[in-house]
Design a protein around this nucleic acid. Sequence first.
DNA 1: TGCCAGGCCGGGT
DNA 2: ACCCGGCATGGC
Length: 210
Amino acid sequence: MLLNVYEALHGYFGDLHWWPGDSPFEVIVGAILTQNTAWKNVEAAIGCLKAEELLHPAKLRRLDDQHLADLIRPAGYYRVKTKRLKAFLNFLNQDCQDDLNTLFADDLWVLRKRLLSVHGIGEETADSILLYAGGKPVFVVDAYTRRIMQRHRLVSDKARYADIQTLFMNDLPRSAPLYNQYHALLVNTGKQFCRKQNPRCESCPLQSFL
DNA sequence: TGCCAGGCCGGGT
DNA sequence: ACCCGGCATGGC
């Protein structure tokens, strides 16, 4: 069933290259900054960090909180996000000496649990990091995924994160490139057809699944 | 103008 | 185990 959904979306949008970001570290920073925030605003914040050549673990970690908050201000929630970025940077330093290759060398589910223990990293952020920065085969469930699945009655209204994730992962091959592409398609679909203000999902490529 | 955007945490039931 | 308020900017 979910492969049919994939085919419908892929037929409409084609191949999408994702996630925006020039390096795994940039992807991680973006994953934290985009929490409940429009990507446009995240782009601006990352642009500020790049302009100062600060998009590196050690440099960011040494940056004064006030200065960091000021730079990521366009992304919103800038005080909480400063704390969350710092929490991750401290974790990265203590856990693997700032080396992402070492970080991602660990087993998928073990690493997921460790990420979830970092303050400010929840399920979606952890999975985005694992899939898009680490290339690990784990399915990302975000607001768009949930809304699209619920509106098309493919999951119940009270399905939890793990329920939806398991649904996808049990129904699809365990493939990082597939999950990457699939989630990108869902986000595009969500942005274009399935926003809160457009409850009918008019002319969405998934109409036939209603 | 008001509502919303690629969540998460902490405190209260 | 759920539910809710708080967190903040920028776009439509």
